[in-house]
Computed example of a mutant assay.
Amino acid sequence: MPKIKTEKKSRVHNEVAKQGIMFNKDFGQHILKNPMIITAMLEKAALRPTDVVLEIGPGTGNMTMKLLEQAKKVVACEIDTRLVAELQKRVLGTPYQQKLHIMVGDALKTELPFFDLCVANVPYQISSPLVFKLLLHRPFFRCAVLMFQREFAQRLVAQPGDKLYCRLSVNTQLLARVDMLMKVGKNNFRPPPKVESSVVRIEPRNPPPPIPYREWDGLTRIAFTRKNKTLGAAFRQTSVLTALEKNYALHCSLNNVTIPEGFDVKAKIEEILTEVEADQKRARTMDIDDFMKLLHAFNKNGIHFS
C-alpha cells in the first residue's frame, strides 16, 4: 500500500509531535520558536503588571507563557482545539492557570473583550481584517505589537508616492500611528513560512478623527480601485456613478430634500472634483489630508459613500 504523504499539507512541530499535533496551513500555523524575538516583542509592547493582554493565535504558547510572567491577565484567542488543549496543559497546576483565559474560535467572528495591549504572531491570512477589527474595537487599547508578513507590514507604513502605498496604508494611518519595529527571518519559525516577516507597533489615535469611517472607506475604495489613474477617471466608471446616484437619492429622501430637476450625478461629481482641484490627482500620491478635504467636499454636496 503506498505511503500517504501529509507533509505537503502540514508539518509536525517537534515539541508537540508526541501528542500527534500536525500544523494546519489553513490556519496559517507557523510557531515562533526564537525566544529572543518573543522577548524583543514584549519589550516593545512595554507591558505593565496591571495589563490585560490579548493574544491572537497563541499556538503552543511560547509567547503566552512569557506574557503570563509579566501581565495581570492574558486572553488567548485560538481556533484550533488541539492547540487549546496543549496550552491548557502548559499552565495546568502553575500560578499562571488563573491568569490565562482562552477563547476558542475564530478571532474575526469573536466579540473581543476589554484589553490594554495586543501582542501576537498573527496568522497571515487574517492580517487585514484583524487590523481593522482591532482599530474599530472599543474601548480603546493602548497599543498592539504584531508580527505580519513583511510586505503587508511595509504596506501598513507606506507613505504617498511609495510603491506599496495603497488603501490599506491610508485607512490604517487614519486610525492609528504605525511604526516598523524589526525584521524577522523565516528560520525563526517552525515550520518556516515561505515569506519573511516584520513586527509593527500600532497605536490607535484616541480620540479618532471626527470622520464617519464607513464614508471614508467607501471613498478610498473607489479612489484606489485604479490607484495609478486620475480620480476623474476613477469616478467616471459607470458602476461608481450608479452607486453614488442611488446614495444621493437616499440622502435626499432621508433629509426631505427635493432632487433638482435634470440632476446629473456625473456632472455634479466632476464639478466637486474640479472645485477641490482633485480631478487630475492620483490616489497613490494623496495623503490623509487630501482625502479628508475630498470627503468633506462630497458630503457637503450630498454625495455619500455608505
Rank of each mutant, 00 (worst) to 15 (best):
K72D: 15
K72T: 10
K73H: 15
V74L: 09
V74I: 12
A76L: 04
A76G: 03
C77V: 10
C77W: 00
C77K: 00
E78K: 02
E78D: 02
I79E: 00
D80W: 03
D80K: 00
T81Q: 12
T81E: 12
R82L: 01
R82Q: 01
L83R: 04
L83M: 15
V84C: 13
V84M: 08
V84L: 05
A85H: 10
A85C: 08
L87D: 03
L87W: 01
L87A: 11
L87T: 03
Q88H: 07
K89I: 00
R90H: 01
V91F: 03
V91Q: 02
L92G: 06
G93I: 05
G93T: 04
T94W: 06
T94F: 09
T94M: 11
P95C: 10
Y96I: 08
Y96A: 11
Y96D: 13
Q97W: 11
Q98I: 11
Q98W: 00
Q98G: 06
K99I: 07
K99L: 09
L100R: 10
L100K: 12
H101G: 01
H101T: 09
I102E: 04
M103F: 10
M103W: 04
M103V: 13
M103P: 01
M103C: 10
V104G: 04
V104P: 01
V104Y: 03
G105P: 05
D106W: 06
D106Y: 02
A107N: 02
A107K: 02
A107E: 01
L108Y: 10
L108E: 03
L108I: 07
T110C: 10
T110E: 08
T110K: 11
T110A: 07
E111N: 14
P113I: 08
F114S: 12
F114P: 09
F114N: 11
F115K: 09
F115A: 12
F115N: 09
L117S: 04
L117H: 07
L117W: 02
L117A: 06
C118G: 12
C118Y: 04
C118S: 15
